[in-house]
Amino acid sequence: MKTKARNVPLTRAAVLGAALEIIDRDTVDRLSMRRLGEALDRNPMVLYRHAANKAALLDGVAEIVLAQLTVDATDPDWRHQLRSIARDFRKLAVAHPNTVSLLVTHPLSTPLALRPLGTLRPLEDILELLTRADFSGADALHIYRALFGFLHGHILNELQEIVEHPEETDDLLRLGFHRLPIGEFPLLRGLASNLATYDGASELERGLDILLSGLTTTIAPAATRPRKERRS
C-alpha cells in the first residue's frame, strides 16, 4: 500500500516511518529498497539520498523507535525513573515486536562509538540521571548494563513465549509437557500453571523489584557511603 503521493516532498522521517510500517507488518527480512520505494511511490534510487543502504535504513528505524523512549535525567528518584524507563521500553518492544532484533541484538555487532547517535541517547541520559544521584560514572554504567541486560532478556523471553496447544484447558497439555519423560522434571511440571499464564507486565515488575533492590543494596551513591569508603 502506498503511503505517500509522488507530489509530496520526500523526507528522511517519511522514509523511516514507511520502513517501520513495513517491518511492523512483514518483519525486517521483508524490508527492501524496492518495497520501500513502492510504498512511497518513488524510484528506489531516490531513497539512497536518505539512507546509504539497508543497514543505514535499519539504524534509522532503531533511532526513531528509541526516540520514543523518554528519560528524565532530572528526576530526583533514580529508582522511580529506571522503573519508568523499563516500562516504556517494554511497551515499545510490544508495540513493535519485529524491531526487537534492531534494539537488542543488532547493536551488539557494532562498536559503541559507531552506532547511530540516536541509539546512544538513552545511555547518555541514564548516565546523567545516575551521576546526578551521586553515583560514580563506573557505577552508573554498571547499573545501566544490569538494567538493560535484564530488559533485553525479559523482552526476548516475553515475545518468544510459545504455548504449544493454546486451545487446551489443561496447563500441562497446553505446554506440551505430556511429551516429557514421566517422572522427570517434577519442579518444571509443578510450575505449569505459572508458565501457561505468563504475564509480561507482571513479570517485568517482579524482576525490577528484585533488580532494583539488589542494586540499592550493593551499589550506593557516594554521598551515602561511609566517609572512609568514599576516600578509598
Rank of each mutant, 00 (worst) to 15 (best):
R225G: 06
T119F: 03
R12T: 13
S101E: 15
A192N: 08
I143V: 12
R12C: 00
T99W: 08
H80G: 03
A133T: 01
V100N: 06
D125S: 12
K2M: 00
I155Q: 03
D209N: 14
L127G: 09
N53A: 02
S109F: 11
R35L: 14
R174P: 08
L187D: 14
G200A: 15
A95V: 02
D72S: 02
K2R: 01
I22A: 04
D24T: 10
S32V: 06
L10D: 02
L40A: 11
R132S: 12
L151C: 12
L215V: 11
P226K: 11
H80A: 13
L108R: 12
G37I: 09
R225W: 06
A62T: 04
R115W: 11
P122I: 06
A39W: 00
R206L: 12
L211K: 08
I64Q: 06
R174W: 06
P76G: 08
V100Q: 03
I143W: 07
L215P: 08
T131V: 10
L47R: 06
F177N: 04
R35Y: 03
E63F: 00
N43F: 03
F150D: 10
E38T: 10
L31H: 08
A146H: 06
D29S: 07
V94D: 07
A133C: 00
H142L: 14
T105F: 06
L175G: 11
I64E: 12
H178T: 14
S193V: 02
L31F: 08
A196V: 00
L195K: 05
I210W: 09
R90D: 12
H142K: 06
E38I: 09
S202R: 15
F89I: 01
V104N: 14
L195N: 01
P97M: 09
T70R: 15
L112G: 04
F150N: 08
A39D: 02
L108D: 12
V163G: 04
P111H: 02
E128H: 14
L108K: 05
M33F: 15
L31K: 09
D88C: 02
V28G: 04
D41F: 02
R227C: 03
P97V: 11
D170Q: 05
H178A: 13
M33H: 11
F148K: 05
L112C: 00
E128A: 13
N43Q: 11
S202G: 01
V15A: 01
S32C: 09
L180N: 02
E158G: 10
L10Q: 01
R115F: 13
T70P: 00
I210Y: 12
R87M: 02
Y48T: 11
E168D: 14
P221H: 06
E21L: 09
A18I: 09
H178W: 11
Q160S: 14
L10T: 04
A39F: 02
R83E: 14
A140E: 07
A138T: 14
L156F: 01
E203N: 13
I85P: 07
L114A: 11
P116I: 00
R90I: 08
T27A: 07
L151P: 05
I182C: 01
L117I: 01
Q81C: 05
K4L: 15
L204D: 05
L47P: 08
G137E: 14
L211F: 12
D29F: 06
R42G: 04
Y48S: 02
I210G: 00
E168F: 11
